[in-house]
Design a protein around this nucleic acid. Structure first.
Lengths: 181, 181
DNA sequence: CTTAGATCGAACCGATCGGTACGATAACAG
DNA sequence: CTGTTATCGTACCGATCGGTTCGATCTAAG
């Protein structure tokens, strides 16, 4: 459903959606019940897809947490560089319809990203993996928004990657700077 | 114009806007020409306001760049804690109407934030103030989005503040870790 | 072949949309 | 007082919205 992503939830009517997919209104309404139902299904599917894709990218980088974290931001960079990149569909949807369904979907989407980042932070031996993971989530989210809306920062993912690695290193074992014996 | 912020650009019609402000449609159209014109004027005014507010908060913290940076994120925390916080109006608008006017306004809004952060990064003696400032911009933007859309991270600004200070410290003079003589 | 279900295109529905026109009222400058 | 200007409330416009209905067409199971 790229047209919903490109034009926004309210930027295209049901008739336009049907035309873009090559389906009649009756069929669409029997399958999804309403435009909202269609939107939720599309967003859910998209969240699944990108979550799997991000996790796959991380795991393909090997077992080292720092490598995995770097791979996450490299994957984001590839995404941001796609010609029709328009920001995160889930976050955009929540910004448009700030009601229960879209807001919940976006929250669950972020929760899934947080889960991946928490695993990485934990395996990296961070003192407070939860806090570090949330900071990384802020970097992931922020770099995606900035890459979309601030043309003067097209390399947001690269900068976020560097910041993430700095935070990861700093969060290792801050109380003592001794070398491990 | 809080109603536009609360319900979204497409969530309220011109009639509703007029009712909320206590003005007739004719008056609104003579002053702004169209709903789009009204939206642009409102967003522009809001961008001015929050930009000034953020700069004032920073300057009130004294002259130390680290203190100023911390103050910026403290100000964000206050904002995020407001009961009717709904994310950044400029970013939301760009997510809704991804067309020329709103996208440009959001880009200019981020540009103004970047200017403030660049000043701080420069005065802090960062090796690459531009890069550091962009990383800080990602933290500011990301923490605002996460605070809005991820209820499990209500302290996003606090986490971002800590990350920002870590980055600031790390960006000081990374090539040598010698003590200043 | 027959029948049941899915799909199609198009017509149709009431509601709302952004925007305009109008006559009345109020305020104020000469 | 007179004329101008701004505002008001309301009615109105064509277009589009989300959603429903209907008859025709197709497909597959019995």
């Amino acid at each position: 459903m790229p047209i919903l992503y490109e034009r926004g939830l309210d930027g295209v009517g049901v008739a336009g959606l049907c035309a873009a997919v090559g389906v009649s209104k009756e069929t669409l309404y029997r399958h999804f019940g309403s435009k909202e139902g269609l939107i939720e299904a599309v967003l859910e599917a998209r969240s699944d897809r990108v979550t799997r894709w991000l996790r796959t990218s991380a795991e393909a980088a090997g077992e080292d947490p720092a490598d995995q974290l770097a791979a996450v931001f490299d994957a984001l960079a590839d995404w941001h560089a796609e010609p029709d990149f328009r920001g995160c569909a889930l976050l955009n949807a929540a910004a448009q319809h700030h009601g229960a369904p879209e807001l919940d979907l976006a929250a669950r989407h972020l929760e899934r990203r947080l889960a991946l980042l928490t695993e990485i932070a934990t395996r990296a031996g961070a003192t407070d993996p939860g806090a570090l993971a949330r900071q990384l989530l802020i970097l992931v989210t922020g770099s995606t928004v900035v890459a979309d809306q601030h043309p003067a920062t097209p390399d947001a993912a690269r900068l976020a990657r560097q910041a993430a690695l700095t935070l990861l290193q700093a969060a290792g074992s801050p109380p003592s700077s001794r070398e491990p014996r």
